[in-house]
Amino acid sequence: MSTAWHMDDELAADYARGRTGPTLAASVEAHLLACAACRGKLAPEVPRARLDRVWDEITAAVDAPRPTSFERLLRVLGVPEHTARLLAVTSSLKPAWIAAGAVALLFAALASGETSRFGTLVFLAVAPILPVAGVVLAYGRGADPAHEIAFAAPYSVVRLTLLRAAAVLGVCVALALVIGLAVLGDGGLMAVWLLPALALTTLTLALAGWLDPLMSGGAVAALWFAGFAAVAVYEVRPVLFGSVGQLASLAVFAVSAFVIFIRRREFS
């Protein structure tokens, strides 16, 4: 395809001065990548330094990975480029997973409508578990097939894990807030599950120091649902979301974070 035509002097001069339209420029650039003769023709038209810079940018643009929309969003939020790339490869931050999470929340929210016997309880039970599932996916062996290579790299495994967990938590909280407010429309209700979500996620990470992440996440979810059911049987508005529950969540979070901190070497 690239040998069907070559640049004549006029086109070279136009391109060098930026007088070609974007479509023609793109096609010239595609051709330049494959044709050394035309690159040579362009050289006298452009100051050397500028040519080198243009050339660098072209090769960089051609084979460098295109940032995903999630990555671009992170960049906008001020996350550095390399960190955004590390986060973007996390499976539970992929559009498919986020969509699945949104659907799960949506059903939970709909099931929590006025007609349900337990009211908003279904939503409150599901919302804090979503980030746990996300973290299990982000941290499990299957999530990073090249984990053996990642282990041997200088980047801290704990840091990588916490970074991904934080991103997953952030995405889940944003999702649950938006869906909860849209479907249930109760702002106060939206605040009560934040601390339990943080506690359960941190507990999952802390337990993952001993257990397989899937086991750890499963254990935390089972614990949560059991506790939730037990409390829900006795009270309509469960203690879990009252001040007792909030304090307990805070305690679980603090202990789990401490465990992660002192065992940070064992993680890698």
Partner: peptide, 25 residues
């Protein structure tokens, strides 16, 4: 070794490069 399924060669090597503390893009 296993590699991330959907990655291109460049993306995979770039990913490892980040883990090797190469920060400047």
């Amino acid at each position: 070794p296993a590699y991330q399924r959907g990655f291109t060669v460049f993306e995979f090597v770039d990913y490892v490069a980040i883990l090797k503390e190469m920060v400047d893009r």
